[in-house]
C-alpha cells in the first residue's frame, strides 16, 4: 500500500521536503498507528495493574466471588491453572502475550469466551453511541447557529446547553420514561428489539453531550463570527447565512471536532448508566458488572475493544482536523 492516500497539497515551503515527507497524510497516519499501538499497550498495562491492586483474591474471583466458599484445594488449583502463583511480572508478560495472540480467555464470572461475549454485546452499544453522537452534533450545531443568528437565541440556547450538560443520565432517563413511556405510552421503556426502543436511550445519551459540545462550538462560532474574514465576507456582500455556512461554521467545527474523541469516551461512560436504566444489553453494562466482579479477562477485553474503537474514531477526527488545519495535527 505504498500509494499516498490523498494527493499531497503544497503548502508554503513544505512542498520542497524530500522523499516520503512529501506525503504528510500518509506519514501522519503511520506515526499515528504506532501511537495507537502504544495507547493500546498502555491500556492493557493499566488495567492489569489496577485490577491487581484492587483488594480481593483473583483466585476467589475466578471461583465465583468471596461468597462461593471455595475450598483451599480448589483455590490452589485455580492459582496453578491461571499462573497466579507466579511473579507478577511473569503474569503481566503472559497477559501481554495472550492479548497479542488473541487468546482473550473466558470470563471468570460468565464462564464464556470473552471474544464471543464482546461480539454479542458490541453492536448495541456502537449503534447507541453513533446515533447519540450524530444527534448530539446536530443539536449542538443547531444551537450554535441559532445563537449567532439571534440575540434571543444566544441567551436561550446558552441556558438550554447549561441545563442539558448539568443533567445526569440516570435522572434524564427516568424522566423521559416517566413522560413518554408510563405517562403518554408513546415509546417503550425497555429494549424490545424494535427501532422505537432506541429513541429514549439515544436522547438520554445525547443531550448532556450536546450541551457540552454546543457550549464549545458557540464559543468558537462567536469568535469566528466576529473575525476579520467574516467581516470581510460581509463587506463583500455575502448574506448572513452565507457567512455562517461558508466561514463561521467551518471554523467553529474545529475545536468541536477535536472533542469528538472526548465525546466518544463520554458516550461510553454514559452507556454504562443508560444501558442500566433502559435494560439494554451492551458493553457498558458488561463492563460495569465485570469491574464489580473483578473479572480480569472480561475487563481487559472490553476496555481494549473500547480503546480500539476510540483510536479509530480519533484517527478519523484527526485526519479531518488535519484537512482543516494542518498545523494542529501531530
Amino acid at each position: 500500500m505504498g500509494e499516498p492516500l490523498t494527493t499531497p497539497v503544497p503548502r508554503g515551503g513544505r512542498s520542497s521536503a524530500p522523499g516520503w515527507r512529501r506525503w504528510p497524510v500518509l506519514r501522519r497516519l503511520l506515526v499515528r498507528l504506532a501511537g495507537a499501538v502504544g495507547v493500546l499497550w498502555a491500556v492493557v498495562t493499566l488495567v492489569f495493574f489496577a485490577l491487581r491492586a484492587v483488594p480481593g483474591d483473583p483466585a476467589e474471583a475466578i471461583m465465583g466471588g468471596p461468597g462461593s466458599q471455595a475450598s483451599q484445594a480448589a483455590l490452589d488449583r485455580v492459582r496453578e491453572e491461571y499462573a497466579l502463583n507466579r511473579p507478577l511480572l511473569v503474569q503481566y508478560l503472559l497477559q501481554l502475550r495472550r492479548t497479542v495472540t488473541g487468546q482473550w480467555g473466558d470470563s471468570y464470572s460468565l464462564n464464556r469466551p470473552v471474544v464471543s461475549l464482546i461480539r454479542e454485546q458490541i453492536g448495541g452499544t456502537l449503534l447507541l453511541a453513533v446515533l447519540a453522537l450524530i444527534l448530539a452534533w446536530t443539536l449542538a450545531l443547531l444551537f450554535a447557529a441559532w445563537s449567532v443568528r439571534s440575540p434571543l437565541g444566544a441567551r436561550l440556547s446558552s441556558g438550554l446547553e447549561i441545563a442539558a450538560s448539568a443533567m445526569p443520565h440516570f435522572w434524564l432517563g427516568a424522566l423521559l420514561i416517566m413522560v413518554f413511556s408510563t405517562g403518554l405510552g408513546w415509546l417503550p421503556a425497555i429494549s424490545t428489539g424494535s427501532a422505537d426502543a432506541l429513541i429514549l436511550p439515544v436522547i438520554t445519551l445525547a443531550v448532556p453531550v450536546a450541551g457540552f459540545l454546543g457550549q464549545v462550538m458557540r464559543e468558537s462560532l462567536l469568535n469566528a463570527d466576529a473575525s476579520p474574514f467574516a467581516l470581510t465576507a460581509r463587506a463583500h456582500g455575502l448574506s448572513e447565512t452565507g457567512v455562517l455556512l461558508r466561514h463561521t461554521l467551518a471554523h467553529a467545527a474545529l475545536p468541536a471536532l477535536s472533542l469528538t474523541g472526548w465525546a466518544f469516551g463520554s458516550l461510553m461512560s454514559g452507556a454504562v448508566v443508560v444501558e442500566n436504566v433502559f435494560a439494554r444489553p451492551g458493553l457498558g453494562r458488561l463492563l460495569m458488572g465485570a469491574v464489580l466482579k473483578r473479572d480480569m479477562p472480561l475487563v481487559t477485553g472490553v476496555v481494549l475493544v473500547i480503546a480500539i474503537v476510540y483510536v479509530l474514531v480519533t484517527l478519523i477526527a484527526d485526519t479531518l482536523e488535519g484537512l482543516f488545519l494542518p498545523e494542529a495535527a501531530a
Partner: peptide
Amino acid sequence: DSSTRYAALKS
C-alpha cells in the same frame, strides 16, 4: 433499574 421495571409493567 426498579423505576424502569415498573414503567415497563405499566406500559
